[in-house]
Simulated assay, not measured.
Amino acid sequence: MNWFQRKIYLYNVTFGLYMLDWWERCLFNILVVVLMWFVFYNGFRYFAEFCRRY
C-alpha cells in the first residue's frame, strides 16, 4: 500500500464508506465535493471582501 491508497482506505474506514455500494459511495463523495466547493468558494469571497476593506 502506498501513501495515497492508505489515505483512501483511512477515509473509507473513518466515514464508514466501506460498507456502502459503489453508487452510494459515489453519491456521498459528490456531496462532499460540492460542500467543500461551497465552503472554499464562499470563504474566498469573504476573505477577498475582508482584505478589500482593510
Rank of each mutant, 00 (worst) to 15 (best):
D21R: 12
I8H: 02
M36L: 15
F28W: 07
T14M: 15
M19L: 11
K7P: 00
N2I: 07
Y41K: 08
V39S: 10
Q5P: 01
R6Y: 01
L17N: 08
W22Y: 12
Q5C: 05
R52F: 01
N12H: 06
R6G: 02
F40N: 10
M1Y: 04
T14S: 14
V13D: 06
C51K: 13
V33A: 14
M19F: 07
R45S: 06
N12P: 00
N12V: 01
L31G: 11
L10E: 14
N2S: 12
I8S: 05
C26R: 09
V32N: 10
L27Q: 06
L35E: 12
F15N: 15
V33H: 03
F4S: 04
Q5K: 11
T14F: 15
N12I: 01
L31T: 07
C51W: 13
V13I: 09
E24H: 08
N42T: 13
Y11A: 13
Y18L: 07
V13G: 00
C51Q: 12
Y54C: 01
R52P: 00
Y18P: 00
M36E: 11
R53M: 06
W23S: 13
Q5S: 13
F28R: 03
G43E: 10
Y9W: 07
Y11R: 09
D21N: 07
L27M: 11
R53K: 13
F50Y: 14
F50C: 00
Y18I: 07
Y41H: 08
G16A: 05
R6I: 00
L10R: 15
V39N: 08
Y11K: 09
F15A: 10
E24S: 12
F4N: 04
W3H: 09
L35S: 12
I30S: 05
K7D: 01
F28P: 01
E24I: 03
V39G: 09
Q5A: 12
E24N: 07
N12K: 09
F40I: 13
W23T: 11
A48I: 03
F28L: 03
R52Y: 02
Y18G: 07
M36I: 07
M1N: 03
Y18A: 11
F28Q: 02
Y11S: 10
W23P: 02
L27P: 00
L35G: 08
Y9Q: 10
C26Q: 08
E24A: 09
F15Y: 15
Y54Q: 07
